[in-house]
């Protein structure tokens, strides 16, 4: 429960100008929370405790308040994950168009189930809910980018780019 007394590694933003710019866009500090979290995650890969502390200090609130926010959103990761995140949409239109087979395909290919990461840390597989691209189902979000109307073959080509 108590901290073990070890000093925590301190997180600092690599691009303080961007931080300044973010703050300048909002009438209050707290509104900068989400953009700062996005920025920190793109730098660190996930939201560590030191990121939480650092952002809490910047936006002038308690770390627990930032954590309350972070834990609500699916795009913020509080633990490290693989270098590439394969997010397969599983909601109705994608499901009707073969999303489940894509999940099975990744599981067969890399021996990872949804939520797992390959041993070499190359891929993390996630099943996600509607990505808002139902007209081009099935859709997979590879890291930040959408890949639409995927077939097994197109999916393999995509995965190969990241192997």
């Amino acid at each position: 429960m108590k901290s073990n007394g070890k000093p925590k590694p301190r997180f600092t933003f690599e691009d303080p100008e961007r931080v300044e710019q973010i703050f300048s866009q909002y009438p209050d500090k707290k509104s900068a929370t989400l953009p700062l979290l996005h920025l920190a995650q793109s730098q660190e890969g996930y939201i560590s405790n030191s990121v939480i502390d650092s952002i809490a200090e910047l936006v002038d609130c308690h770390p627990a308040v930032v954590m309350d926010c972070v834990s609500f959103y699916t795009m913020f990761y509080t633990k490290p994950h693989g270098r590439n995140i394969i997010q397969i949409c599983q909601t109705l239109s994608c499901s009707l168009n073969g999303a489940d087979e894509l999940v099975d395909h990744v599981t067969d290919k890399y021996k990872i189930k949804p939520g797992e990461t390959t041993a070499d840390d190359q891929f993390t597989l996630m099943k996600v809910e509607c990505l808002g691209s139902c007209g081009t189902a099935p859709v997979v979000q590879m890291n930040k980018e959408y890949h639409e109307s995927l077939t097994k073959q197109k999916f393999d080509e995509l995965l190969a780019e990241f192997e």
Binding site: K2, K8, C61, H62, P63, V65, M67, D68, F72
Partner: peptide, 21 residues
């Protein structure tokens, strides 16, 4: 502000940060 709600929906629970009981 030690207490917060962690996660959402059915998984929501009351929590504290490890170093801020």
């Amino acid at each position: 502000s030690e207490l917060f709600v962690e996660a959402r929906g059915y998984n929501s629970k009351i929590a504290v940060l490890e170093d801020n009981p």
